[in-house]
Amino acid sequence: MKLFDTPSNPSKNLLPEDGMVYYWGKIMAEEKADHYLKALWETIAWKNDEAVIFGKHMVTKRKVAWYGEREFEYTYSNITKKALPWTRELLDLKTLTEKTTNESFNSCLLNLYHSGEEGMAWHSDGEKDLKKHGAIASLSFGAERKFAFKHKQSKETISLYLENGSLLLMKGSTQDHWLHRLPPTKKVHLPRINLTFRFIV
């Protein structure tokens, strides 16, 4: 059974230990979520993601963008990005996310997956630029995709499906003890846009 087939309970921690993850499910109507998917697709300055792994420069099919309240520099996978100024849609979504989660954010890393064949490998968001144990809120638009967590020591896994217009929050020591990923799948042919609101120190 898919986790979201039962009513979402944002007060229930989805992790059994060593961190906190909360899922609100859909926080807006389908029509509104579709509107944001189209607007973000058309207005965001998308670029193919880049990484330097073992000295080799890699370019992904997945596209990314980095926005914030100032020209924050954010480094991951040995590549540094400089934040662009907020768009109207991003500001609206930041406000909604802050009101829903009671957290504050000053930046957003966006991902565009053209189909299910594009995903993200196991990783933690533990970059030094991020507030230690700060909250990371993930808003999803478009195709419903599986999202998984794996404990770094026990290897226990937890997975759920992220819906169009849904909100997930990771906080506390989650990044210290858990990896997360978006596994690729050939069953999904539609695009997904994911917004991860963060706090840069």
Rank of each mutant, 00 (worst) to 15 (best):
D92K: 15
Y161E: 09
F141Q: 04
A135C: 02
G126W: 10
E118H: 07
A143H: 10
S107V: 11
F105C: 05
L167E: 08
S104M: 11
S140C: 04
H123V: 08
S115L: 00
L130E: 11
L130F: 14
Q153P: 00
H177F: 15
L96S: 05
K155M: 02
S107P: 03
F149E: 02
E89Y: 13
L130T: 12
G134W: 12
N102G: 02
Y161C: 08
G116Q: 04
L91M: 11
F147L: 03
L112M: 06
L109T: 05
Q175G: 09
L169C: 12
A83T: 03
E98D: 07
D129Y: 12
H180E: 14
W86P: 07
E118G: 00
L168T: 09
H123M: 05
H114W: 00
W178Y: 10
H180L: 15
F141K: 05
L84P: 00
G119L: 04
N164D: 15
T100H: 12
L169W: 14
M170V: 03
W122T: 09
C108Y: 12
S104W: 06
K82N: 05
F149K: 01
L162E: 02
G116Y: 11
L93Q: 13
H123P: 11
E98T: 08
G116S: 09
Y161Q: 12
Q175K: 05
L169R: 02
L168V: 11
S166A: 15
C108Q: 06
D129C: 10
N106A: 07
S173L: 01
G134R: 01
L109W: 07
S124E: 10
E127M: 09
K155R: 13
F149T: 02
H114F: 04
H133M: 04
T87E: 07
S115M: 04
D129L: 10
S159L: 00
E144Q: 12
A83F: 04
N102I: 00
L110F: 03
G142A: 01
L182V: 15
I158W: 02
S124Q: 15
F149A: 03
T87D: 10
C108E: 00
L169K: 05
L130P: 10
S154D: 02
Q153G: 06
K99F: 07
S104P: 00
D92I: 08
K155N: 12
R181Q: 15
N102L: 14
A148N: 02
N111H: 13
L84G: 04
Y113F: 04
A121H: 06
E163I: 01
W86H: 09
K131P: 04
D176I: 13
S138W: 11
E163A: 14
E117G: 01
F141P: 03
E89I: 11
S124I: 03
T97F: 14
L90A: 12
W86T: 10
E156T: 14
R88M: 09
K81P: 00
D176C: 11
S154I: 01
G119D: 10
W178C: 11
K171L: 07
G172I: 00
L167M: 08
K81S: 14
E127K: 13
E103M: 13
R145H: 06
G165S: 08
E89T: 10
L167K: 06
S124C: 11
L110C: 12
G172V: 02
E89C: 10
L91C: 08
L90Q: 09
H133C: 03
E103S: 14
L139C: 09
Q175I: 05
E127A: 10
K171C: 14
R145I: 01
S173Y: 04
L112T: 00
L84C: 00
S115K: 07
Y113K: 04
W122C: 09
